[in-house]
Amino acid sequence: MNKTVVATLLCLLMIVFFSGGSHAETEHWKIGHVRSPGSAIDNDIRALVDHIKTKTGGSILIDIHPANKLGDYSVVQERVAFGEVEMYVGPFGTAIDKRVALAFTPFLVSSWDEAKRVYTQGSALFKQMAIFLENQNIKVIGGWPVYFGGIALTQKPADPGNPDIPKEMIIRVPPIRSFERTARELGYTPYPITWTYAKMGLKTGMVEGMLGGGAEGYLGLKGIIHYYLPVKDHFEYWFIYMNLDLWKGLSEKDQTLFTDALQAMEKRRYAVAEAEEIASIEKLKNQGVQVIEFSDRERAAMQKKVKTNVWPMLKQEIGDAFEAVVGAR
């Protein structure tokens, strides 16, 4: 009788243990991003979090922290590396490794079809970025295409389509050399500050415009900017990443769960991103912003000057990875 009871108890313990899947207990994570609640990225992340919760039987619960509540993207990058924050969606800062500027290569792509090939899981760019970030204890697991970059200004520049004409305007750029050099080659004087302080700079007149964002991002500057130049200087692609040690601790099944879910999310985003960009430009017009369009000749002149004068600097800083990505386009 005692043996029967013991055997029964052992069976019950095994059932309880294995029914928990690959998780011994519920894990609570944090994920941050740069936009406000209810934005497109926020809605996609909420759907992702719900999917992960369902597929893991509630063993992985992820709290969403929108609107930079966890800190500026460069700050959170370090927090993820140290394991203080589990996941993040956004761009990478280049303070620790300048090679990460590869993702911001100016005029690397000029159309949405090109972007779909270059900025995606499994591409040469994605693989190189993953290699760079592993040295920071970060695992890149997906991405979210945002928009093509443009310039927002408080005043109309001189001959905006001619990069050889000095604009005599100081504009904010991200504190990343490729953006600084690009602004100079297009005729502007760059002033590197983070997005957090850029709006204040526009209000005080410290800067007369911004480079480093796109139409959707500039919608929050209503009444401050009056001109938008869709130069397509870079393609904004927010990487989705997590702490590398945390990633290594996941089962192969859960790793596949994340990468498959993020691949599907990226595909859905690409299906609507171009239309949303067009809609954002229309919203800028409705706010009273004048959109300055460019001819093919003007675009070609801007691209040629930047590629001629900025790309060699990037090649020197990034190394063979730059050529590998450019050649794989």
Rank of each mutant, 00 (worst) to 15 (best):
N286W: 13
G187Y: 02
I141K: 09
I52W: 07
E168A: 14
K315P: 02
Y241T: 02
G205M: 07
K253V: 11
K3I: 15
Y237P: 03
L229S: 02
K116L: 14
D63P: 08
V325R: 08
V118M: 13
D233V: 05
M87A: 03
Q255Y: 06
F107W: 05
P37M: 07
L202Y: 04
R269Q: 11
I52V: 11
E252R: 06
P160A: 05
T204A: 06
M313N: 10
M206C: 04
E78H: 12
Q290G: 04
E216I: 09
S39C: 08
T94N: 11
E185V: 11
T154I: 11
L250P: 03
F107T: 05
Y188A: 02
P160G: 07
H28R: 12
I52S: 00
A300G: 10
R299F: 10
Q263L: 07
M206F: 13
V80G: 00
R268Q: 14
E266P: 00
G83K: 01
K69H: 09
G143Y: 09
G58H: 11
V76G: 03
Q287A: 00
S22W: 12
P106Y: 02
E274L: 07
W311A: 04
W238I: 00
K267A: 08
Y197R: 15
L202M: 01
N286I: 01
P66Y: 03
L229E: 12
P157E: 01
N68F: 09
Y119C: 06
A264Y: 01
M169S: 00
V76T: 02
S123G: 04
